[in-house]
Simulated scan of single mutants.
Amino acid sequence: MNSGQLLTMHSDVVIKKLLQLADKSYKSFLRASNTSYNAEIGTSRYWKAIGSMEQSQFEFNDYMKQLKFMDELTQWSNKLHQDRYKFVEKYDIVMEKYKLS
C-alpha cells in the first residue's frame, strides 16, 4: 500500500478535518471583521482586528488549496452523493466558496 492509496481510502476523514478548519477560520474572519467595523480607526483594537482578519483569510485560502489538492488526488467532490461524505452538508458556506474558486 502506498501513500496515494492510503489517502484515497481515508479521504473522507481528511476532507472532514480540512472543512472543519476552513469553517473555523472563516468564522474567525467574520468575528474580526465585525470588531474592525465597531472599533475606531487607528486604535490598537482596530489594528488587532485587521491583523486577525488577514491571518484568518490566509489560513482559509491555504485550506482551500489543500481541499483542491485532495480533490485532484481523490476526486472527492465527485463522490458527494456517497454516505461517507454526508458531513459536507454541514459546511455549506465553505463548500460554496470552494465551488466558486
Rank of each mutant, 00 (worst) to 15 (best):
F58L: 09
M70P: 05
H10S: 14
F29G: 05
K17S: 10
Y85D: 00
K90P: 07
K68M: 10
M1T: 08
L18T: 04
K17M: 10
M1H: 09
K48I: 05
K99C: 05
D92Y: 14
Y26N: 09
L6G: 00
K65H: 06
Q55I: 03
Q82W: 07
S36C: 06
L100Y: 04
M70G: 07
L30T: 10
V14F: 04
L21H: 13
I41K: 04
Y85N: 01
L73S: 06
A49F: 01
W76G: 00
V14Y: 01
Y98N: 02
R45P: 05
Y46C: 03
D71P: 03
K27H: 08
D83A: 09
F87L: 12
H10C: 15
T35F: 07
K86S: 12
V88T: 11
M1D: 09
Q82G: 03
H81G: 05
L80N: 02
N61Y: 06
L7C: 09
T35Y: 05
A22E: 00
G42F: 03
Q5M: 15
S3Y: 11
M9N: 12
S33G: 04
Q57K: 07
Q5L: 15
Y85I: 01
K99S: 02
Q66G: 04
G4T: 14
V94M: 05
M9K: 15
T43R: 09
R84T: 06
A49Y: 00
S36N: 01
Y85K: 03
T43A: 07
E96V: 08
M64R: 02
M95G: 01
D62F: 07
K24N: 01
S3N: 13
Y91N: 04
M1C: 10
K86T: 12
S33V: 15
S11L: 10
S3Q: 14
G4D: 11
E72Q: 06
S33W: 11
S101H: 08
T74Q: 06
S56K: 05
Q66E: 08
E72W: 10
S101L: 13
L21M: 14
S25V: 06
Q75F: 15
I50R: 02
D83W: 10
Y46H: 15
F87K: 09
Q57E: 09
K97N: 08
E54K: 12
L73Y: 00
A22H: 00
K65C: 06
S11A: 15
F60A: 02
R45S: 08
I15D: 00
S28E: 08
D92M: 12
V88Y: 01
N61F: 07
E54S: 10
T8L: 15
H10D: 11
I50K: 03
D23H: 11
E54H: 09
M9Q: 11
H10P: 09
V88A: 04
F58W: 10
V94S: 01
D92V: 12
M70Q: 05
W76E: 00
V13W: 10
E40D: 08
G42Y: 02
L18C: 11
L19V: 11
Y26G: 01
N34P: 07
F87D: 06
A49P: 02
